[in-house]
Simulated assay, not measured.
Amino acid sequence: MQKILVIEDDAIMGHMLCMYLSEEGYDVKQALNGKDGLQLMDELKPDVILLDLMLPDIDGMELCVDIRKRSDVPIMIVSMKTEVSERVHALKAGADDYLCKPFSLHELTARVYALIRRAQGSAKSGGAGADFRSEQAEDMSARSEEIKLDIERRLLIVRGQHVETTFSEFEIMRLFISHPGKVFSREDLINAIRGFDSFVTDRAIDVHIVNLRKKVEENPRSPRFIKTVWGVGYKYVQE
Rank of each mutant, 00 (worst) to 15 (best):
Glu217Val: 10
Leu149Asp: 02
His208Thr: 02
Gly25Phe: 06
Pro56His: 07
Gly233Val: 06
Ile77Asp: 00
Asp10His: 06
His162Tyr: 15
His89Met: 13
Gly127Tyr: 13
Met173Trp: 05
Tyr236Trp: 15
Arg87Val: 12
Val163Glu: 08
Phe103Ile: 04
Val232Tyr: 12
Ser104Leu: 10
Ala192Asp: 03
Asp197His: 14
Ile193Ser: 01
Val216Asp: 03
His106Gln: 12
Ser222Trp: 08
Gly231Ser: 10
His208Trp: 05
Ile209Glu: 02
Ala123Val: 11
Glu62Tyr: 03
Ala110Phe: 09
Val112Gln: 02
Ser144Ala: 07
Gly25Ser: 06
Gly233Glu: 06
Lys214Thr: 03
Pro74Thr: 11
Glu239Ser: 10
Leu53His: 08
Val183Arg: 10
Gly129Ile: 04
Arg118Lys: 13
Val210Cys: 03
Gln120His: 04
Thr82Ala: 09
Arg87Met: 15
Ser125Arg: 15
His179Asp: 13
Ser85His: 09
Val88Trp: 09
Leu108Gln: 01
Thr166Pro: 07
Ile205Asn: 01
Ser134Met: 07
Lys3Cys: 06
Ser134His: 07
Gly160Arg: 07
Ile49Phe: 02
Gly34Cys: 14
Arg159Glu: 14
Leu32Lys: 11
Glu218Asp: 15
Leu55Phe: 11
Val84Pro: 03
Arg117Asn: 08
Ser141Pro: 00
Ile58Pro: 00
Gln39Met: 12
Gln39Thr: 15
Gly231Pro: 11
Ala114Glu: 03
Tyr20Trp: 15
Ser85Tyr: 09
Gly160Lys: 06
Asp52Asn: 13
Leu5Ser: 08
Ser198Val: 03
Asp139His: 15
Lys69Pro: 01
Ile4Gly: 05
Arg87Ala: 08
Thr82Ile: 02
Arg143Met: 09
Ile151Lys: 05
Arg111Leu: 07
Glu146Ser: 11
Glu83Pro: 05
Arg213Asp: 01
Tyr26Phe: 11
Met140Ile: 15
Lys215Arg: 14
Asp96Met: 12
Asn33Ala: 04
Arg68Leu: 08
Ser168Lys: 10
Asn219Val: 15
